[in-house]
Amino acid sequence: MKSFEYARPASLDEAFALLSENWGETEIMAGGTDLVTAMKQYVTEPNRVVSLRGVAPLRAINATDAAIEIGAMATLREVLRHDAVKAQFPAVVTAIQGIASPQMLSRGTIGGELCQRPRCWYFRTGHGLFAKENGEALVPAGDSRYHAIFGNQGEAHFVSPSSLGPVLVALGATLRIQKGADSRDVPADAFFQTPATEKDRETVLKPNEILTAIVLPVSGAKNATYEVRHRHGLDWPYTTASVSFVLDGGKAKNVRIALGHVAPTPWVAKEAQAALEGQEVTEATAAAAGAAAVAGATPFDKNGYKLQLVKTAVKRALLAATA
């Protein structure tokens, strides 16, 4: 780890004053579970780390009839145990339970979970976000088993590592981003981006902006997450599907289906949504939606198996949501 300065501001105002407007100079630390590792791997080498532990309001979770607003510094365990979250959002509960380590749940925050860097093994061993060696992309001819099958035609081949990203997309959540006195609300699917260059990041956050809260609209929609993991305990999912829909006269409406770990961002499965919209949710329609979800996939040599996982995850998430 490179040496850096450290500060623990007591308020957001103080925090903003400490942040650079350029990536690479300062990093915001929430729980640190990813950042500390990323710094050890020299994935990021900030000159200053700004810890948000001292900004108490960021940890609050407020529930109303219309929405649950989760402070970005709320720990994953606090979110997991929140009564309103448990009552309304099984999709969130399943995704957090999937991060099976109690140690991770105590320290990891929801904001940090959304902003963690990709786990791509080329990225983590010094080949940059676009996984290159001497200018040549490593993933296409290399070990692509955990890489993207969607949205991988550009230079970004990694998958978004976030477990909650697809859930928030499926649930239509908004993310509150603050910069000084300015605040903006960004829909979850617009929060994530495929970086245009290696210097960019995987979210629209600017280096001197802070993700302060996640707002989950309470709509009564059915929702669920299904994860395919290799190990039964702590492991990175191979593929996840998060779904949300309203049952209107037995038919699924406002269907939202988002996939995780298959693209550089959470991936909205538009064809699958369309396939199910207006249908009853049955084994057959869920399977059809699953089959539709792989439309447009462009797997590499070693990750074609993920198509099968996508089909299954979508089907099972839809069936779980109706159960």
Partner: peptide, 28 residues
């Protein structure tokens, strides 16, 4: 779970960690 995987261009282990060099856990 276990398998040592290597970078085809450099020869470095891709999973030289306990994250992708998987060991069974209590639940497995």
């Amino acid at each position: 779970y276990e398998e040592a995987l290597y970078n085809h261009k450099t020869g470095r282990m891709l999973n030289g960690d306990l994250e992708f060099y998987r060991l069974a856990g209590l639940k497995d």
